[in-house]
């Protein structure tokens, strides 16, 4: 090794200019796909809306039938799809980064089952009806379960919870809540009827009010996630190296968990059990982005949104005039793709 080399132009992180250019290109491509998917999601449905009418409805609505469909049905539904997709994709990447576990999904902290239990309980105990009201309960349940899991991971120890402790506590709490939910729906037929449709995962028939309900939570979660990305990079070199680099490991984990909770809690409350999306998308994004979380998180988010919208559109097309729940489409279409990808290349380990 020659130690006398003059300092030439050093390679920047993320590699040479070409690597960086390629990454920006992928990012632009993902934005493009998302835009196309959004337009399709607004145009396609039980009643197809021509592209000209889509534009008319968005830009200068004049109260035509198509304007009303676009503005009161399709746009809110699409907005929720985009938000939930981004949220679940980012939350999944965060969760897998923190736990260094490919099995980790955004529901790992008990979010999904917390939401399910709270919604079922609200139906049985308070006689709540209507989607609008369930969502607040779902959100509250998701946040409570996640905070509980984090607290359990903290109890007794000094410093933050270890990823394994978090994952196991999350799984235990999830199973516990799922069992309670099962017991409740087995005793109450009406709750069972709501629960089984929520469980399948859907963004159909969500109005603008639902979109506004979840927006602040998802926005806050995304901000926390972006702050968390560089710290997570340091943490991926192991806790010792992260500490040596001046990283407060406990703080990093806490911020990460808060971000995951907000993101997945809000989307699960609005759309049902879609955590497979959050599990799958980071595995698809990682080969493109490499191990740098500052790229992985945006890639995962955008891919999540694209996947959710396209699956939702497909669900409207294949079962016309009815609809197939987006959760089912995602699993049926996404999982084979995911499996093929895992088979074709050597999986990128965390």
């Amino acid at each position: 090794m020659s130690t006398t080399t003059a300092v030439a132009r050093p390679p920047s992180p993320g590699g040479t200019r070409t690597v960086r250019g390629r990454r920006l290109l992928v990012l632009a491509a993902l934005f493009g796909i998302l835009a196309v998917a959004a337009v399709l999601s607004i145009a396609i449905g039980a009643k197809p809306v021509p592209l000209a009418d889509v534009w008319h409805g968005l830009a200068s609505p004049s109260g035509t039938e198509n304007d009303i469909i676009v503005r009161s049905l399709r746009v809110p539904r699409t907005a929720i799809g985009v938000m939930a997709g981004i949220a679940l994709g980012v939350a999944g990447a965060l969760m897998q980064g923190h736990t260094r576990n490919p099995l980790a999904d955004p529901g790992l902290l008990g979010v999904t089952q917390g939401a399910a239990f709270a919604m079922v309980l609200s139906i049985i105990a308070f006689g709540v009806t209507g989607l609008h009201a369930y969502i607040w309960f779902g959100l509250a349940g998701a946040l409570t379960a996640s905070v509980g899991v984090f607290a359990l991971g903290m109890v007794g120890g000094r410093g933050g919870p270890t990823p394994v402790a978090l994952a196991l506590a999350g799984t235990a709490v999830s199973s516990f809540l799922y069992a309670l939910t099962s017991a409740l729906v087995l005793m109450d037929e009406q709750a069972m009827d709501v629960f089984r449709f929520w469980q399948a995962g859907s963004i159909a028939a969500r109005g603008a009010d639902t979109a506004w309900q979840v927006l602040p939570f998802i926005a806050a979660g995304l901000v926390l996630a972006l702050v968390n990305a560089p710290a997570l990079n340091a943490l991926s070199l192991g806790e010792d190296v992260a500490r040596a680099l001046g990283q407060n490991v406990t703080l990093t984990r806490t911020v990460g968990v808060a971000a995951v909770t907000l993101l997945s809690g809000a989307s699960v409350a609005a759309c049902g059990a879609l955590s497979f999306l959050g599990l799958m998308v980071p595995h698809l994004a990682r080969p493109l982005s490499g191990p740098d979380h500052r790229w992985l998180l945006p890639y995962s988010g955008l891919m999540g949104a694209c996947a959710l919208l396209l699956a939702d559109v497909a669900g409207r097309v294949v079962a016309r005039p009815g609809e197939l729940e987006v959760g089912v489409v995602l699993a049926l279409a996404g999982a084979p793709f995911f499996v093929a990808l895992v088979r074709r290349r050597k999986p990128v380990r965390l």
Partner: peptide, 17 residues
Amino acid sequence: GVLPQAPTAPEGLTVAD
């Protein structure tokens, strides 16, 4: 600066990164 014993890095990380 501290360099611990046998540190680990995620797969695919380049030297410059």
